[in-house]
Nucleic acid binder design. Structure first.
Length: 523
RNA sequence: GCGCCUGUAGCUCAACAGGAUAGAGCAACGGAUUUCUAAUCCGUAGGUUGGGGGUUCGAUUCCCUCCAGGCGCGCCA
């Protein structure tokens, strides 16, 4: 990675400074820049320009072809062409992770209804993040947690039972806080045909039904999980009782109004939280802490949870629970993915799972191609609210950045097919020094930046920059294509360019693969 | 009232860890192909970065405050 090489180079000279390497704006010369001179100047009271001159004089490395100082003190580096070309021949091994084990839990939709659009966004983000982590040397696993025990699945079963009654002509009386969605009618029909009417059996059947649905829908979306963990398993292992005992023994619980409270305020929460209700039921928090204890005991270096915006208030109490068990706060990172609002006909589509008006992922995928949905979800950072305009996504599917990128790939594949028809087969070590044109070098620089984008993603745990990078890479290819021919009379030059564009196509394929978008050979 | 997120071009969004003349796409207008895919490319136009203050050599970025919007604040998950 060039950026890291520069950083290391400067760090050796200035070990006490925090070195920041930036890209250079288009209207300035150079490839990378540093603000190091400003930092030193402000600390020593010297003129940044003079400091910059001193820094430049003290640096000498084959990586750097030239340096330019811009007032008031920017130092810009021009990377040597030989070095850039060498990156094509020997792509750097990207290893940020040193094989650390990371567990990412995401989606974890309750088995009471379809996967909604916010869960789908989390699925796209989590899956892409895991792909990037794996690519950069981590051992990353995807986990899905199933709440198959609580009050919600009971309510679901009751709601279904009412729907079954409805099928036999009895007016359904679905509880007010039950599930009113019409998607349960189909399930009721199935259960009626099977003759299942016992409420516990209904629950079991329905839970399995939804888990299966979720698995299939997510598979269609290109998202698979390594582990599916059920809340009931956590109970069976006795972990819930164990957590309860630890909390009691540590004096971190107390009774009030006949309910049992966890002293969450001692761990940074705004109030103490009920863990056992006055009715004797566990609130979700207790098994949730137990579940995270289970995760921690499985030997991961880091846990990451991806949650929807409505859960942000639970971060403190969960981490509080984990801390109460003796784990450090840093053991878990919670990423909040902001909401998705569906737009249709100029207005927003209202969503509520219990009322059954949520827009489900499977229905969305019937409307909009998977590639477009996944790409759109990744075009915003997690913390951005996302407006998904259904009409626009359909109408503008022709004008989509996804197709812009895929088209660049298909074009390159076409060129390579054309070259092969002409009998040109690129040798493993073409004369790359023939690559000199501005458009060629821009494409080359764009290719070489790929690992740096991955590094940013890992640092921020947010995969969205990859979409912008791929658009930029595709653009650099399209510019190049417009100005220069790959296959021409000059055989050596053709080989060099074939090598370059082939490399670009491989990076595009890699990048799209990381975000679960397909990469067609022809368009 | 408290907490989280957001406010940048007509629209949807970028700006990587505080950097340089704030960039793309869409929409509008004008152009480019007898040669490897026109789902492409070139050009024109479009901005008081919600308002105000502060820190800094430098703020879209950090801090304070106000305004506007979304979400959450249960002995539901």
């Amino acid at each position: 990675m060039i950026r890291n090489k520069l950083r290391e180079l400067l760090s050796k000279k200035f070990p006490e400074e925090k070195i920041i390497i930036d890209y250079v704006p288009k209207n300035k010369k150079g490839d990378y820049s540093t603000n190091l001179a400003f930092k030193i100047a402000s600390r020593t009271g010297k003129n940044p320009l003079d400091v910059a001159k001193n820094i430049v004089q003290s640096i000498n490395d084959p990586l750097i072809a030239d340096t330019i100082i811009y007032p008031p003190g920017f130092i810009n580096f021009i990377i040597s062409k030989e070095f850039l070309l060498n990156c094509l021949l020997e792509p750097p091994e990207i290893n940020l992770g040193t094989h650390k084990k990371i567990l990412i839990e995401f989606v974890s939709v309750n088995p009471t209804g379809p996967i909604n659009i916010v869960n789908a966004r989390a699925a796209a983000i989590g899956n892409s993040l895991i792909n990037v982590l794996k690519k950069t040397g981590f051992k990353a696993e995807a986990e899905y947690y199933i709440n198959d025990q609580g009050r919600q699945t009971k309510l679901l079963a009751v709601s279904i039972k009412e729907r079954i009654n409805e099928l036999t002509g009895i007016k359904p009386r679905i509880p007010e806080d039950g599930y009113h969605g019409e998607y349960l009618i189909e399930l009721a029909r199935e259960l009626k045909a099977l003759g299942i009417s016992d409420i516990e059996k209904i629950r079991e059947y329905a839970v399995n039904y939804f888990i299966n649905e979720h698995k299939n829908t997510l598979k269609d979306f290109g998202v698979e999980f390594d582990n599916w963990v059920r809340e009931s398993e956590i109970y069976q292992q006795g972990l819930v009782d164990k957590v309860l005992k630890i909390l009691n023994d540590k004096g971190l619980t107390y009774k009030k109004d006949n309910a049992l409270y966890f002293r969450a305020t001692e761990f940074g929460d705004t109030e103490d939280r009920v863990i056992i209700t006055s009715q004797g039921r566990h609130t979700y928090l207790l098994p949730d802490i137990a579940y995270h204890l289970d995760k921690l005991s499985r030997g991961y270096d880091r846990l990451i949870n991806i949650w929807g915006p409505d859960h942000h208030g639970y971060i403190k109490r969960l981490i509080g629970g984990i801390r109460a068990l003796g784990y450090p706060e840093e053991a878990i990172t919670v990423i909040i993915v902001q909401e998705v609002k569906l737009k249709k006909g100029g207005g927003y589509v209202k969503m509520s799972k219990r009322a059954g008006t949520s827009t489900a992922l499977d229905r969305l995928l019937k409307d909009i191609p998977k590639d477009v949905v996944r790409f759109f979800f990744l075009m915003r950072s997690c913390s951005q609210h996302l407006d998904f305009d259904l009409d626009l996504a359909r109408e503008e599917s022709e004008d989509n950045p996804v197709y812009y990128i895929q088209y660049a790939y298909a074009r390159i594949r076409s060129i390579i097919r054309f070259a092969e028809e002409k009998g040109l087969k690129c040798p493993p070590h073409p004369e790359l020094s023939l690559i000199n044109k501005e458009e060629e070098l821009n494409l080359l620089k764009s290719i070489v930046r790929f690992p740096e984008v991955l590094e940013d993603i890992v640092r921020n745990l947010d995969p969205y920059p990859i979409t912008y990078y791929l658009i930029d890479l595709a653009r650099n290819f399209h510019y190049f294509y417009q100005k220069h021919r790959v296959v021409g009379d000059d055989k050596e030059l053709s080989y060099a360019r074939l090598f370059l564009v082939n490399k670009a196509s491989r990076i595009i394929a890699d990048g799209l693969n990381l975000i679960g978008v397909s990469c067609p050979e022809r368009m």
